[in-house]
């Protein structure tokens, strides 16, 4: 068996995206019982600086398609290169990060090859399927997160899936695979480059929710931007990072890069405090894996209490200042 992983750099840097390492670790774990191979493909003008990490997390080999024209996301060119790679390497499984790049390229590749692609998988398992032998079970939430569907691709190869960053935990165990690069030769056609990148404007963001041990998040229930300062104060008292629901972001209480959920960051801190957040399916999708959840909400029927471990029903405008005071006194 063979699993291929699409390798991505974090835009604006020369380093690997976390999701690439997470997928490498997952692929290595999937392949291990079958003594299978994990192959990476990288398309671009320069390999990431930290490719060593790929081998540490269990990759066996990296195929590098090197082209100075492919600094940016030229979808059609990258798709054609990856499709050629798939046709010649014949992996059984191909994994992409469910990033804006992965979700741009993977569907094009699957469409060209005539195979299945399952988006945003939260679990990947190899098992027997009827008379088809071992196949990949691709488990994903659907229907706004109200159902979990298991999707299979029984008759087409490769079986393709995308996984969001932060969903597969990074494995602890590191392998001592030897570093092995190969260059891929492709019959590159200039007409594959159909777009011109006029300008790249970096987004300035200091927020890294994925690394935080404790997150205090505010929602629409906080009420206004002024009141949202309370969330920052509580976070400061706890040494925590600040998160938010989409409603809080949409109301302009806080910047978009703090949004937690389906269209924001997926976080799994040790403690998540949800203040004035109802607990919509889309919000829960980004935080329900947290080890402990505390919900503060004036509505005892708010869905957030369904997944919380600690709860307090009442007005956050009274409760949070009290909390801050006692935290400071006790600390």
């Amino acid at each position: 068996m063979k699993t291929a992983v699409f390798i991505e750099k974090r835009a604006g840097t020369e380093r690997l995206r976390n999701v690439t390492l997470e997928l490498t670790g997952k692929a290595a774990a999937l392949m291990k019982p079958f003594h299978g191979e994990v192959v990476g493909i990288f398309v671009g003008d320069r390999l990431p600086e930290d490719t060593d990490d790929l081998f540490k997390y269990g990759m066996h080999r990296v195929v590098f398609y090197n082209n100075a024209k492919l600094k940016h996301l030229h979808s059609i060119a990258i798709k054609n290169i990856v499709a050629q790679f798939v046709k010649s390497e014949k992996p059984d499984i191909v994994l992409f990060g469910a990033t804006h790049t992965g979700r741009d390229i993977a569907p094009l590749v699957a469409a060209q090859i005539y195979t299945g692609l399952t988006a945003d998988c939260t679990q990947l398992v190899i098992d027997d399927y009827r008379d088809k032998g071992k196949i990949l079970y691709q488990i994903r939430p659907a229907f706004g997160g109200n159902i979990l569907a298991t999707i299979v691709t029984p008759d087409h190869r490769p079986m393709m899936a995308t996984v969001r960053e932060g969903v597969m935990p990074l494995p602890e165990q590191k392998s001592n695979n030897t570093v092995k690069f190969e260059e891929l030769t492709v019959d590159f056609k200039d007409e594959w480059v159909k777009s011109e990148f006029l300008r790249i404007i970096p987004k300035i963001s200091k927020v890294d929710l994925s690394a935080a041990n404790v997150i205090v998040s505010g929602g629409a229930g906080v009420g206004n931007k002024e009141a949202f300062k309370m969330i920052f104060q509580l976070a400061e008292a706890l040494g925590a990072e600040v998160g938010a629901s989409r409603a809080a972001v949409d109301f302009g209480f806080v910047e978009k890069d703090r949004q937690v959920g389906q269209t924001g960051s997926v976080v799994r801190p040790k403690l998540y405090i949800a203040c004035g957040i109802s607990g919509s399916i889309q919000h829960r999708a980004g935080m329900e894996e947290s080890q402990k959840i505390l919900a503060i909400n004036k509505d005892p029927d708010a869905p957030i209490f369904g997944i919380a471990h600690m709860g307090i029903v009442g007005d956050l405008k009274e409760i949070i200042p009290l909390m801050i005071r006692y935290l400071r006194e006790e600390g």
Binding site: Y129, N146, T153, H156, G314, I319, Y326
Partner: peptide, 27 residues
């Protein structure tokens, strides 16, 4: 190419939830 093998509804289930009183002592 893809087939749905199984569907499981996700119920909003009550876990072990510890509630605190919103008054001074609870906080």
């Amino acid at each position: 190419p893809t087939k749905v093998n199984a569907i499981r509804d996700i119920a909003v289930q009550g876990g072990d939830l510890k509630m605190y009183d919103p008054q001074l002592d609870g906080v």
